[in-house]
Design a protein around this nucleic acid. Structure first.
Lengths: 355, 355
DNA sequence: TTGTAAGCGTTATCAC
DNA sequence: GTGATAACGCTTACAA
């Protein structure tokens, strides 16, 4: 029921290449080449060395190998949460993103190094590269770090970012078409009769700014003006969302629709509205963003803009490996898809609603 | 919109300690000591060296450091999925566990290396330790790997496992009281009137075996016999669960309750039952295991046995760091808690039901 | 309090 | 094809 602390050094002293070399009667260099399937090595030697390695359970020490060769099959996944005090990795969207990347990386034969950066430090990206020598890095979310990312990318560090494609950025992004997503959500509410639609989110974040742009665009196209008092700031973490939504429900603001910048926010909004006796979707229709797994299961089921994370993660990894390989790579914008469920009424017309 | 592939070597040639040493007019060893706040170094020297390091954005190359010192602040998180072909990291339970561990590790100042092992290889645990030199490893789930884990632990590798505490194991585990959990779920159904309760799960897995033990125990204590045909094998991945549950719903088996070995299985069971017109909880009451976030949101909301993952993750990390530090550490069994929601009727009595 | 020098386990370079 | 030998960037006796 209790485990002895392992005596320091109790672990079998790990084999090294020189051990294998001795056992095989060859030099270390030959062992190295044989284990890497070098074309230089004689077939027989290769086989013998590999057999011995297998029998003895020898594993190349990647720490040493990557120190010398300046290569590694490690990919860093960087989560920047400087903009949110309370957003943990356990945020449903982050979790899903992470899991999908983990699956994609492990299929590609890479190990994944997870670093959560919560304090902004100059050069934190460079820091990770220098400290751990990953082959490349995936950043989840631009947060407020556009400048840092830009600098790291210009310095030649191989990285790929999940987020918004911005003008003149020199790093590769993979992300959803946020403008279209915001427009889709808004047009849907307008088409179903809403006229005063709250936008819940932090437009300081690049992705949210684009969704808001879509919100404005949909209003313009439908011939409606945007009432600026309906733009309500709201963070991603559950507490911030709950607070903002409670304020929304109780405040004197008049509104009949909500476009939230994430599903977590949307779900909190629905809850807050119902708590003060407003019916969803009859009094207020709500649309989320992300389509996290939960969205389909809540009651009423959440209408939302779907981001295809499985595809996004695969693309992130694919693009990153191309960047690492020195290829020229283009950013990708994935289509946004509206998933209509129960927090909104089906629109009369599904086409782009003009008036 | 497109990013140039970084010219090889475009990245600023990383500074090394010898650069810092030159700039500071001291030796490399002094730099090393200064950066590690060694008591040996003169305060003035320490300050000067640290200042230069900060100004130049120097970061210790952990790859080199850990090669030399045989230490690292990297913790490997190993997910063994050999028992499930289709269980991805994106499984809700895995995701939640992972996210919680990531949060706990980053709070403790450790980076996390994620390795998903899906092909069983002799000595895979030793392999990771040799290849990456982590300070320690957290294993999520024992799967069928008890023997491998046991061997690695005996070899002195610092590791901690989420899973079942077994007799005479020499590794440390943190996990839920699975026997109590299984008993709690079963007793609840018996108390609410169920008499033929299906157990859905793979008893070959240590944790499931214990939950099944609890299932039997609850029957015994309530004075009922267990009908062996009600023990239905079922894997964790959604496809396997759906298949097993569909079979369950359509087969000629007579039953009025289900104890599932995970929430994902339980939710699939509910869905399958409703699809063939059986009412939950009126015709069949269902209890899950885990209390994943979704459980509270599905309709009808799932009655389940809660595992406290936030606490579990914190304990895993805490225990592992103690093991790494060479302390003697005891396994932990966390209490299981029944959360009654809508897929079961509230029991007449909440005490241990004897008859 | 600081410097010198050896070496962690691998791979790259050059010679044979 | 194979083997010496010298790094990679750091830590750590041991010396001073």
């Amino acid at each position: 029921m209790s485990a002895r602390a392992p005596a320091p050094g109790a672990a079998a002293p790990a084999m090294t290449m020189s051990d294998i070399a001795r056992l095989a009667g060859v030099s270390e260099s030959t062992v190295s080449r044989a284990l890497h399937d070098s074309a230089l090595i004689a077939e027989a030697t290769r086989r013998r060395v590999q057999q011995i390695a297998r029998d003895t359970g020898f594993t190349i020490n990647q720490t040493a190998a990557s120190l010398r060769s300046r290569k590694s099959n490690l990919i860093a996944v960087l989560i920047s949460l400087v903009h949110e005090k309370n957003q943990h990795v356990s945020d449903p969207f982050m979790m899903a993103m992470l899991a999908n990347i983990a699956d994609a990386l492990s299929e590609a034969g890479y190990d994944m190094l997870l670093s959560k950066v919560s304090v902004h430090q100059e050069g934190w990206i460079e820091h990770v590269f220098r400290a751990r020598q990953p082959a490349g890095a995936v950043l989840i979310g631009q947060s407020f770090e556009h400048a840092s990312i830009e600098r790291a990318a210009r310095a030649g560090l191989p990285l790929v970012v999940w987020g918004a494609r911005l003008r003149q950025q020199s790093y590769v992004t993979v992300g959803t078409d946020n403008v279209a997503g915001g427009a889709l959500a808004t047009a849907h509410l307008l088409a179903s009769g809403c006229r005063r639609i709250v936008f819940l989110g932090k437009p300081e974040l690049p992705e949210i700014a684009l969704r808001l742009k879509g919100y404005r665009q949909a209003h313009r196209e439908a011939g409606f003006a945007v009432a600026e008092e309906l733009l309500v700031p709201c963070g991603f973490d559950p507490a911030a969302a709950a607070a903002a939504c409670a304020g929304l429900a109780q405040g004197g603001l008049r509104f009949d629709g909500v476009v939230a910048s994430s599903d977590v926010i949307a779900i909190n909004a629905v809850r807050a509205l119902r708590a003060v006796g407003r019916l969803v979707p009859e009094d207020v229709a709500v649309v989320g963003f992300d389509d996290v797994e939960m969205a389909a299961y809540v009651t009423p089921a959440l209408t939302t803009v779907r981001q295809d994370l499985a595809r996004g993660a695969r693309l992130l990894v694919e693009k990153l490996l191309a960047v690492v390989a020195g290829q020229s790579v283009r950013s990708v914008v994935l289509p946004a898809e509206l998933v209509v469920r129960e927090t909104s009424r089906a629109a009369a017309s599904h086409g782009s609603p003009r008036g």
